[in-house]
Computed example of a mutant assay.
Amino acid sequence: MASTSEKSTPRPSGFIQSVDRALTILEFFSKERPESGVSDMARELHLNKSTAFGLLCTLERRGYVEQNPENGKYRLGLRTLDLGNVKLAGFDVARVAHPLLRSIVEQLGETAHLAIYERGEVIYIDKVESDNTLRIASFIGKRNPAYCTGVGKCLLAFQTEEEIDRVIGAGLVARTPQTITDRVRFMAELAAIREKGRAGDNEEFSLGLICSAAPVRDSKGKVCAAISVSAPTIRATPKRLAIIDKTIAEAAASISRALGYKSN
């Protein structure tokens, strides 16, 4: 029997519960939880064990999940990777930006990212890793909050007023003592980003880590992505930060031009 919360939740027109439940199962897996047994999954998702098992069997037949023969637990199948690759291939900005990201890493020796915005989060769609021993724990497909990351603020600054209000209304939760949690100060920060065309993160997401980011515009002038460089604070001297900011701004402008953007 469905849980009380499932029964009481209003469903929009066209809602298909079985599809929603199957997608919820796929989203249940994460880097922190790559595998799960049927019982644990059913309990966490408030599903009957038989329902969860039936959905997993269907997804397994289509290749979206697979069962680990050693422990009987389920994990994502290779078919999900195929879909991810199809989606990434559709991002022209990723194809154009990748050589520039490599150039940034060669020049600065720090990790470079390309990210897009989605409902209050940034999604990393490309990454070039540096050879430094102190590196950033990130990966393609990773999501982070927009309000407390340099690349996230860079993208959020160019969203609609309604979207910015929605994100602020959801809460500016302090990730570190440096996180901006005051609405007035945060709005001023976004205004400064729009004016300068660059964003920074001074240990707002993670202590010991800074980030410099710049927006990428498409042929219509819309901010469609952002690139960033992240570095540990021990390497972020004022002189080096100035070099990072300049390099990021120039690379973002080059990517924008390659996408057809013409600045005034």
Rank of each mutant, 00 (worst) to 15 (best):
T9L: 10
I234K: 02
S103N: 10
E35L: 05
E121G: 06
V229N: 04
G77M: 10
F15G: 13
D126T: 00
S230A: 07
G72A: 09
A236D: 11
S263A: 15
A192C: 04
R33W: 01
R61T: 13
V173P: 11
E250D: 12
L190W: 06
D201Q: 02
I255D: 04
R198P: 07
M1P: 10
L88V: 09
R21S: 07
Y261W: 13
R194I: 00
T51D: 05
E121V: 02
T58S: 10
A249H: 01
D92Q: 11
G171Q: 06
E35R: 13
F186R: 09
V223R: 07
T24G: 14
S263Y: 07
G150S: 11
A89L: 08
A191R: 15
R79D: 05
H46I: 01
E44G: 03
C57Y: 00
E189V: 02
K262W: 03
A188V: 06
L114T: 11
L78N: 12
V216K: 01
F91V: 01
G141F: 00
R235T: 14
L88S: 07
R43D: 12
T58L: 02
L56I: 13
N48D: 15
I136M: 10
G150V: 10
K31F: 02
R61Q: 14
E161A: 06
A94Y: 04
K7M: 12
S13V: 15
G77N: 08
T24A: 15
E66S: 11
E60R: 15
R198K: 08
N71V: 05
L83I: 14
K127H: 05
L241Q: 15
S36H: 02
Q17F: 02
D165W: 03
E204H: 04
G120M: 01
V122S: 00
T247N: 03
E60S: 15
L155Q: 12
R95M: 00
N68C: 15
A2V: 03
L209Q: 06
C224K: 01
R21M: 09
K196C: 08
P69A: 06
A213M: 05
S219A: 14
Y261E: 11
G171A: 04
S138V: 14
L78D: 12
T111S: 14
Y64K: 10
L101F: 05
L259S: 12
Q17T: 11
N144W: 03
S130R: 08
N202K: 03
T80Y: 02
G14R: 11
F158C: 06
D40N: 14
P69D: 11
A252W: 08
S103M: 01
K220Q: 12
E44M: 09
I25C: 02
E189L: 01
G72Q: 13
R79N: 10
E163R: 09
K49V: 06
E66V: 10
E66R: 10
N144F: 02
V86F: 09
L156W: 04
I125R: 06
S138E: 13
